[in-house]
């Protein structure tokens, strides 16, 4: 078995590479790495953007609520942190959609 493989060494490697490519065995790992982020469906991107926006807001509201009950200033810090949370959500979305070019040039 191993002798046979040694005989047509280079050509076997070539044929193996061709066969693997044809079966899609080589393509997925490098291919999957990018499409999952960039080439996602419109629905997938929409879902992720929504999740990012909401989760930042949830965290900010939780922090605002907790700080308010700590300092006894019920509505004010919550109001401030809702705004900050919205900003953080937009920052998340910006990071999600924008960083491809700077990351590549770096």
């Amino acid at each position: 078995m191993s002798g046979k493989r040694g005989d047509d060494g280079g050509s076997f490697e070539d044929r193996l590479a061709v066969a693997r490519r044809k079966q899609g065995l080589d393509a997925p790992p490098p291919g999957v790495g990018k499409p999952a982020k960039g080439g996602m469906s419109a629905m997938g991107i929409g879902l992720r953007v929504g999740v990012e926006l909401v989760s930042a807001l949830v965290v900010a509201i939780a922090i605002g609520w907790w700080l308010d009950s700590f300092f006894h200033t019920r509505p004010f810090l919550l109001m401030l942190f809702v705004l900050l949370g919205g900003a953080a959500g937009l920052l998340n979305v910006w990071r999600l959609l924008m960083p491809k070019d700077p990351a590549k040039t770096k």
Partner: peptide, 25 residues
């Protein structure tokens, strides 16, 4: 004063978005 709280919230929202995404799907 504006950037630091926003960055901290953004950092803390990571586990939330990570968990909500999997759970919601």
């Amino acid at each position: 004063w504006l950037i630091i709280p926003v960055e901290i919230i953004s950092y803390l929202s990571r586990p939330v978005s990570l968990s909500i995404r999997l759970f919601a799907n």
